[in-house]
Simulated assay, not measured.
Amino acid sequence: MRIESIRLKNYKSFKATEMNELPRLCVVVGANGSGKSTLFDVFGFLKDCLTYNVRQALQVRGGFREMLSRGVDGAESIELEIKFRMDVIGVERLVTYLLEIGQEDGQVIVRREILRYKRGRYGSPFHFLDFSGGEGYAILNEEDFGKENEELQREYQEISRDGLAIKGLGQFTRFQAASAFRQLIENWHISDFHINRARGSKEALGEFEHLSITGDNLQLVARNIHDNYPEVFQKIVNAMKHRVPGVTDIKPVLTQDNRLILSFQDDAFKDPFIDSRVSDGTIKMFAFLVLLYDPSPHPLLCIEEPENQLYPSLLWELAEEFRAYAERGGQVFVSSHSPDFLNAVDLDEVFWLTKEKGYTSIFRARDNAQLKAFVAEGDQMGYLWKHGLFPGADPL
């Protein structure tokens, strides 16, 4: 499953913006305040809408008026449209999810929620889920979609006006597209990693299947992989040996008071170091590798400014790991200010943001003739970014 395009309307600084033909590794650059965090928050917003409801997801972001683009009439809607490719009944299809959010009589409502895809390459997309203001339908016999003369059966339902239909219907496998998209959203990982929360001993009980957003359960996840997926853990250790000079082994250790710590072996010393004594960069690189080698990987990773705390020479290595993850079937969105990181990525993978009169525009590097010519002559993306050759974007 891969996201192919994103369209935003009246979503904070994105008054009317879209990104098409998204690659599996998508790198976004732009000046501070240009909208990189807002773009990534689209994924977090949808996940919050699914986990709670639309009203609550808006409230934690300041409310509907704060999320609506400045200067836009309050009667207008916030629109999000995501197109993604997925297997439906044995056929890969381009599925579109559209969400329109408005405010009426001071109350937040979902004005329209649609999930649609085409029967074949041609023709109009068919709506398999279509709700407005808390009322709508979903198709029951989606598996019959490809059969000629087969009548599709609609099930009409009512839901809360500020809730998502995919939240309820997505629990049932008979609503195949809704179920698949719900799972996609639920398994997105939007990283907000904090070194200080990842360090130190941790209680041995807690969430251990996936690395948390902040990384505060790093020791538990490492132990789970070490104990239950030893071949995967060895890949992580081998990657650390290759990426971080001096590291020869890593082990999760259970202390006598039933807490977990990470032990790092350096080839220059006989005794290992506990994680509180190794560098920030070493901890962060290990956390990224634990995330990237997850035995049940996330379909989408969003990571902001991975260069923080990492030595510049490690950024090329990290970009290689991100690309390898994407090639294994995931999708990775990264924002960065680092020329060193950009030097490791391709022309086709880079987008940049500019902001003018309060609104953000998105451009793609491969569509710029000058950048394309420079890269063809052997220049690297980071060099071009550092020297201000991304029109309208300040590299500082």
Rank of each mutant, 00 (worst) to 15 (best):
E155H: 08
G392D: 10
D41K: 12
L99M: 07
A75P: 00
V244N: 05
K241C: 05
P339V: 12
S34M: 01
H337F: 03
A16S: 15
V278A: 07
H210G: 00
G206N: 12
Y11M: 12
D192G: 10
K284V: 06
E305I: 08
A319R: 01
V375M: 04
I114P: 03
Q56P: 01
A180E: 15
Y11W: 15
K9L: 02
L262V: 11
R364W: 04
L314A: 06
F193W: 14
V60N: 09
T51E: 14
R65W: 06
D294K: 07
I159W: 01
G168T: 12
R364D: 03
N224F: 12
N53Q: 11
Q309H: 14
H387F: 14
A178T: 02
I261N: 06
L218R: 05
D266K: 02
F14I: 02
G329R: 13
E203I: 07
V290S: 01
F45C: 02
Y97F: 15
G388L: 14
D87I: 07
F288I: 04
D367L: 09
E135F: 11
E92I: 07
K235N: 07
W352T: 06
C302R: 05
V28T: 11
T51Q: 14
L310H: 08
I236T: 08
A326V: 12
Q380P: 00
A393T: 09
Q176E: 14
G246M: 13
E100H: 08
D48V: 10
E135C: 11
A376C: 06
